[in-house]
Simulated scan of single mutants.
Amino acid sequence: MPEPDFCARVVAACADDALVVGRRRHADLSALGRAGVAALAAGELADDHLPLLEEPQSLREGYARTRDLAEAGPDDWRYVISAVLALPRAVFTALGGFDASLVGYGGEDWDLAYRAWNAGIALRHVPNAVAWHDGPDAAGRQGFAEAKEWRTEEAAQRAVDVVEGACCAA
């Protein structure tokens, strides 16, 4: 659930044709009830009134190390998560969009980000563009690490063909 200013903040960061990710925060939203969720959606609920859950440490560390992706390197596309992703339509189209053949949980965001980075598209993290996720990060779920590792290898294999193809000619 995006905070009221989420869209304005990520759209502003897309102005230079960047692929942008906001900040995904985690809370037990079911503990808030309808009134609490409505207050959160309206931007009327402070963090100290939320049943907060831990944000993924790997994302926090990655964003800090890359200065919010401004200094992203060859493997830093792994810090792009589609739950809080934005990019200009022309960039999305030039990259071929999400790969519809990737089925199941995960991988489509990394695949798109890998192709973007290799096509010279800037990656950006906007930490004050916040969207809330109900429940913990998926990394703690059984089988998630194995699935994401497989998706990483698959993204690297598939992206080379795309990057060398039409998306870079656009």
Rank of each mutant, 00 (worst) to 15 (best):
P2A: 15
A8Y: 04
R9T: 02
V10D: 08
V10H: 08
A12R: 14
D16I: 05
D16G: 15
D16R: 15
D17K: 13
V21A: 11
R25H: 10
R25Y: 10
R25A: 12
H26R: 01
A27S: 12
D28N: 15
L32T: 02
G33A: 05
R34I: 05
G36L: 09
V37L: 13
A38M: 13
G43V: 04
E44W: 00
D48Y: 06
P51C: 05
P51M: 07
E54G: 04
E55M: 15
E55T: 14
P56H: 03
S58F: 13
L59W: 06
R67K: 09
P74C: 04
Y79D: 00
I81W: 10
A83P: 06
V84C: 13
V84R: 01
L85S: 01
L85N: 01
A86R: 02
A86V: 01
L87H: 00
R89L: 13
V91M: 05
A94N: 14
G96E: 08
G97H: 08
F98Y: 15
F98K: 01
D99G: 10
D99Y: 09
A100H: 13
Y105R: 14
Y105L: 15
G106H: 02
E108K: 15
E108R: 15
D109H: 03
D109W: 01
D109M: 02
L112K: 02
L112T: 00
A113D: 08
R115A: 14
A116Y: 04
W117D: 06
I121M: 03
R124I: 02
H125Q: 09
V126G: 00
A129L: 11
A129Q: 06
P136D: 09
A138P: 00
G140R: 04
G143A: 13
A145V: 12
E146Y: 00
E146D: 11
E149F: 06
R151Y: 04
R151K: 12
E154P: 00
A155K: 03
V163Y: 08
E164C: 14
A166Y: 03
A166F: 09
C168I: 00
